[in-house]
Amino acid sequence: MSRAEAKHSRSSSGRSGGSHRAALAQTVELAQAADRLGYTRFWVAEHHSTPGIASSSPEVLVAALAARTSRIRIGSGGVLLSHYSALKVAEQFRTLEALYPGRIDLGIGRAPGGMPRTAAALRDGRPDAPERFPEQLGELACFLTDTVPTGHRHEGISAVPLIDSAPQLWLLGSTDRSAQFAAGLGAAFAFAHFINGSGGESVVQSYKRSFRPSALGAVPEASAAVYVLCADTDEEAGRLAASADLQLLRQEKGEFGDVPSPAEAAAYPYGKWDGLRIAENRKRMIVGGPETVRNRLLAFSRQYGVGEVIVVTTAYEFGARLRSYELLAQAMRL
């Protein structure tokens, strides 16, 4: 039986009535707990002008988390490359790799990370930014591996600091497009099952078949990200997960906000359509007590053909998130 290595890839989420300052402090505490409990990696996302998420600058958070942990790999899940210079991103993560050798992951995403006006502000009005993503990605790979080709417009430019290792490059996505980018570059790939609960298995297999070895990686490396909430019992996990159910439902209605409490979720006036959407969204989740979660996670890893699973955990109370980490680590024998 394949063993799923539970990880964590989650932004600094705010709870209803909480503050972004508190959310960031709790992210540090969660990373330290993950380090202590035996998790493999801890990733933080990039979102902008989103009230419910405090993580807008993953490179800064990665530095803070790496400084406060000792073993676990720290990374971005992920940097939204189309907003930035490939050279600047390469230099930021080379600096992190120089400071914390062998512990830095550079995850790259294609999403805008916010509403259209926010994305436009980040790109400073450059309308061609999304279309340039494949070109930027190739430039980033060259800067990370010191392989800018002769005749390229960036020939002779190096990403400093000059070091003998590189952060591991991951492409993140919920469709086949990012998988093919990763395969063509020889980079690792993570499928976002917590965003798109259908078709991910075939996307991962396509990535593996199309993989081309490079200076970034000799063999394909894939993982899949799924929402997981583990509590002492199946019933308690279901009660706590109602917060995520309502948050996802509201997001589908264009209402973006903090994580609601289980009490608020229980009192919400759900309609027939709401119940159908919650049932559909639960296909992106693994919720239950330790034994239930262990069995479903192992089945999930076999289904995807991956040896690593990224755990995305949302709960109203910080204590419930921390407890989920602890129970999951015990259940998976980390």
Results as ranks from 00 to 15, higher is better:
residue 313 T to R: 02
residue 111 A to G: 05
residue 178 S to F: 05
residue 42 F to N: 07
residue 5 E to T: 14
residue 253 K to Q: 15
residue 93 F to M: 07
residue 182 A to W: 10
residue 325 Y to R: 02
residue 152 H to C: 08
residue 314 T to S: 09
residue 18 G to H: 03
residue 323 R to K: 11
residue 40 T to C: 15
residue 153 R to Q: 14
residue 207 Y to C: 12
residue 43 W to L: 15
residue 154 H to N: 14
residue 88 K to L: 11
residue 222 A to R: 00
residue 286 I to T: 00
residue 10 R to D: 09
residue 143 F to C: 07
residue 314 T to I: 13
residue 319 G to F: 05
residue 238 G to N: 08
residue 44 V to K: 02
residue 218 A to Y: 07
residue 175 T to F: 08
residue 76 S to Y: 02
residue 226 V to I: 08
residue 316 Y to Q: 06
residue 236 E to D: 11
residue 68 R to F: 06
residue 176 D to C: 05
residue 118 T to Y: 04
residue 73 R to A: 11
residue 59 E to H: 14
residue 228 V to Q: 00
residue 39 Y to C: 08
residue 211 F to V: 03
residue 79 V to K: 00
residue 4 A to E: 07
residue 238 G to R: 12
residue 40 T to I: 08
residue 334 L to T: 10
residue 283 K to T: 15
residue 170 W to C: 02
residue 156 G to T: 01
residue 317 E to Q: 12
residue 193 H to L: 10
residue 102 G to H: 04
residue 221 E to W: 06
residue 77 G to W: 02
residue 130 P to G: 04
residue 107 G to H: 05
residue 316 Y to E: 09
residue 215 A to H: 06
residue 22 A to L: 13
residue 278 I to E: 01
residue 48 H to Q: 11
residue 197 G to I: 08
residue 46 E to H: 03
residue 287 V to Q: 02
residue 67 A to N: 11
residue 133 F to T: 05
residue 267 A to I: 12
residue 157 I to F: 15
residue 115 M to P: 13
residue 168 Q to L: 10
residue 242 A to S: 14
residue 277 R to V: 03
residue 152 H to N: 09
residue 14 G to Y: 02
residue 237 A to L: 07
residue 40 T to M: 14
residue 213 P to A: 10
residue 110 R to F: 13
residue 333 R to Y: 04
residue 161 P to F: 04
residue 51 P to Y: 03
residue 241 A to L: 07
residue 255 E to Q: 14
residue 155 E to N: 10
residue 200 G to K: 00
residue 86 A to H: 04
residue 33 A to L: 15
residue 7 K to H: 13
residue 106 L to I: 02
residue 267 A to M: 10
residue 259 V to E: 03
residue 205 Q to A: 15
residue 119 A to R: 02
residue 312 V to T: 14
residue 150 T to P: 09
residue 53 I to T: 04
residue 244 A to K: 06
residue 35 D to Q: 10
residue 34 A to D: 00
residue 213 P to R: 09
residue 152 H to A: 14
residue 314 T to W: 08
residue 61 L to M: 13
residue 26 Q to P: 06
residue 68 R to E: 15
residue 118 T to A: 08
residue 149 P to Q: 10
residue 292 T to V: 10
residue 60 V to C: 04
residue 12 S to W: 07
residue 152 H to W: 08
residue 176 D to A: 14
residue 321 R to H: 03
residue 89 V to D: 00
residue 147 T to C: 05
residue 130 P to D: 05
residue 289 G to P: 08
residue 209 R to I: 13
